[in-house]
Each structure stands twice: as structure tokens, then as C-alpha cells.
């Protein structure tokens, strides 16, 4: 994760340095030599082909493995298949961290992050969904009832120990169905995004070479800035630590609920 983040940041820094050298045409100073204008298409191509697409491909592999293991678990809930599913969840979640910042283009269109990583998860809502059997992950109220944080609860937080968790899935078709549906929704939304990057969107992205609000450059920078400020800096550190509100809020830590530390509410 660190390597990719550093390379992402260094490429971004490179881009910013290149851009800061370009004179602002509206300021009245002469247009720069065409030879010195930054080649935004080359920059966007680098981002698409070296960052986004490979990142999404690696994540796709982990997500596919997660789906395989959760399918195996719901087909035959045992502590062994539970541990397998949990491991696949953890690996996919770590891989997700490397692509969460790409919330532009297809990911923005489907609001990918809202289906993957909004926390704290709404455990009360999840339990209601399971017992009623009726839920729609495309509704605003369902945003905190799906994705990796929901899987955390479903695989780690449902009961006091692994044996009890397994027993829950053995006994309840609704539980098995909910777990399956959470993963299916992630698969559906990511599949759409992945398909578009492997399809026509890559070319759309690299050819949108302006600097206006709808350009690729603008979208990437705004998405990255939002990710860094709200989801990384505030979401992972500032809010849980209480530095932004004055009140520490450990419940807002995106954390792995281990058996030992589970206040299962």
C-alpha cells in the first residue's frame, strides 16, 4: 500500500510542478512556447495505464477471491470456510485502499466508495435488513449497511466467537443471503467501473486534456484532494482522534473487529 501511495503522490507532485510552470493565459502574459507546454495527454496516459488500470486489475483479483470464499462459506459454513472468507476479506480490503482514491470517471458515476467503504457500519440496520429480508443497497439509507465495513460485522462481529458466528450462518438462510448480497452488490458496482476502464473510458480519459472543470486533470485532482482531506486525514485520523470536533470518537475508527475487542452494537 505505501509504495503505491508514494508513487501516486510523486506522480501527482510531478504533475503539479509541471503545471505550475505553465503561465496563466488569462493573466495577459504571453502564451508559453508550444514546446514547453506540459503534455497532459502523456500524463493522463501514465495515470490510466500505470496507476488506475493495474490497480483495478489487482483489486479485481482480490474481489474475485473474496466472492469465491464467501460463496464457499455460505454453501458450507464451518470455522475453516469462515477463516478463509475472513482472510479474503482482509486482503481485498487492503487492496481497496490502493484504489479508493480513484473516485473519478466511472467510479464517481456509480458512487463506488459509497458501496465499498463507508463506516462506521450500521449494525442495527444490518440486523433489521437480515430479519426483514427486504433491503435495497441503492438507497441512501443503505449506504452504511454494505461494503467492507458491513462484511467486517458479518464475518467478525455477529456473535461472541467463531463457532457462534458459524452457527448463525448454519441456522439462518437470511444471514447467508445477506452476506451473499453484500458481496454481489460490490461485485456489480466494481464490475461496471472495471469494465469501463478496460473499455472505452480509458481513451475518453486520456483525450480529455483541458484544464476546465470537466477535464480529466481537474477531476483527478479534485477527487484526490477530497479523498485525502475527508476520507484519509479526517476519516482515518482526525475524527477518531477528536481533533476536529473536540470529542474523540473511537467508534468511528475504520477497524477490524476482532473477537476480543467486539462491542457488538
Amino acid at each position: 500500500m505505501k509504495k503505491t501511495l508514494i508513487s501516486a503522490l510523486s506522480i501527482l507532485l510531478m504533475a503539479l510542478v509541471m503545471l505550475s510552470c505553465q503561465k496563466d493565459p488569462s493573466s495577459g502574459t504571453p502564451e508559453p512556447n508550444p514546446g514547453t507546454t506540459p503534455d497532459r495527454k502523456a500524463l493522463l496516459t501514465q495515470w490510466a495505464d500505470s496507476l488506475v488500470k493495474p490497480g483495478y486489475q489487482r483489486f479485481n483479483d482480490k474481489l474475485a477471491a473474496l466472492k469465491t470464499k464467501t460463496t464457499a462459506f455460505t454453501a458450507a459454513p464451518t470455522t475453516a470456510t469462515l477463516l478463509d472468507a475472513r482472510q479474503a476479506w482482509q486482503q481485498a480490503y487492503v487492496e481497496w485502499q490502493k484504489v479508493e482514491m480513484f473516485e473519478f470517471g466511472p467510479a464517481e458515476t456509480v458512487s463506488l466508495r459509497n458501496h465499498f467503504n463507508i463506516y462506521p457500519t450500521d449494525a442495527v440496520g444490518i440486523r433489521q435488513n437480515i430479519s426483514s429480508g427486504t433491503y435495497n443497497f441503492d438507497l441512501a439509507t443503505a449506504i452504511p449497511q454494505q461494503g467492507f465495513p458491513a462484511l467486517d460485522y458479518l464475518l467478525n462481529g455477529l456473535a461472541a466467537d467463531d463457532a457462534a458466528i458459524v452457527q448463525q450462518y448454519v441456522a439462518s438462510a437470511n444471514h447467508r443471503r445477506y452476506l451473499t448480497d453484500v458481496v454481489a452488490k460490490m461485485d456489480e458496482k466494481f464490475g461496471k467501473v472495471y469494465g469501463e476502464w478496460n473499455g472505452s473510458y480509458r481513451n475518453t480519459f486520456i483525450n480529455n486534456v483541458g484544464t476546465d472543470a470537466s477535464s480529466s486533470l481537474s477531476r483527478v485532482i479534485n477527487a484526490y484532494s477530497l479523498y485525502f482531506e475527508r476520507y484519509l486525514r479526517a476519516g482515518k485520523v482526525g475524527i477518531p482522534a477528536g481533533t476536529m470536533t473536540g470529542n474523540p470518537a473511537p467508534i468511528r475508527l475504520k477497524r477490524i473487529i476482532s473477537v476480543e475487542s467486539c462491542p457488538c452494537s
Binding site: 473516485e103 459509497n114 449506504i143
Partner: peptide
């Protein structure tokens, strides 16, 4: 409308 789509929490949406 785009903000509604991207925001995760109900009040802001």
C-alpha cells in the same frame, strides 16, 4: 445532483 450522488451521509445528501 452530483453532490447528492457522491455524499455518504443523509443530512448532507
Amino acid at each position: 445532483l452530483n453532490n447528492w450522488k457522491s455524499l455518504p451521509d443523509l443530512p448532507a445528501k
